[in-house]
């Protein structure tokens, strides 16, 4: 299982040709209490960098961008009722959507876990 990160603090965890997308622990800490999540429709085609979802804290709304190009194959509808799961377990139950990756080469441009942790250190 491979996890890659964007500079915008999304992660994608690959399982076969599909990837699970969410936001990093650093991102949920920066956001604070998440009170609303808007998810895309299943079947939607996203290009790398497209707005995939919206996450709202008490303070503000933020976009979640798709780390890679592909088709949305599943969304975590449970977040609509319990958005706080994003804070409690961002890497697990707080996932946003699953995407079928159309161009695996795009993953090469993303950060590994180690590179991402270095990146977070450099900006905090």
């Amino acid at each position: 299982m491979t996890t890659r990160y964007t500079k915008d603090h999304e992660y994608i965890r690959l399982e076969g040709d599909a990837g699970t997308v969410g936001i990093s622990d650093y991102a949920q800490q920066q956001l604070g209490d998440v009170v609303f999540v808007e998810l895309p429709s299943v079947g939607k085609t996203l290009a790398k960098g497209d707005e995939a979802a919206v996450v709202e804290s008490v303070k503000a709304a933020s976009e979640v961008y798709s780390p890679v190009s592909g088709e949305v194959v599943e969304v975590n509808s449970a977040l609509e009722e319990t958005p706080g799961t994003v804070n409690e377990d961002p890497a697990g139950r707080g996932w946003f959507l699953k995407i079928r990756v159309t161009n695996p080469g795009e993953l090469d441009g993303l950060m590994t876990e180690e590179q991402y942790q270095e990146f977070v250190k450099s900006i905090s």
Partner: peptide
């Protein structure tokens, strides 16, 4: 201070 460690919901 925008929030303390407990967070905005808890503070509210």
């Amino acid at each position: 201070p925008v929030q303390y460690p407990s967070g905005i919901l808890t503070e509210h």
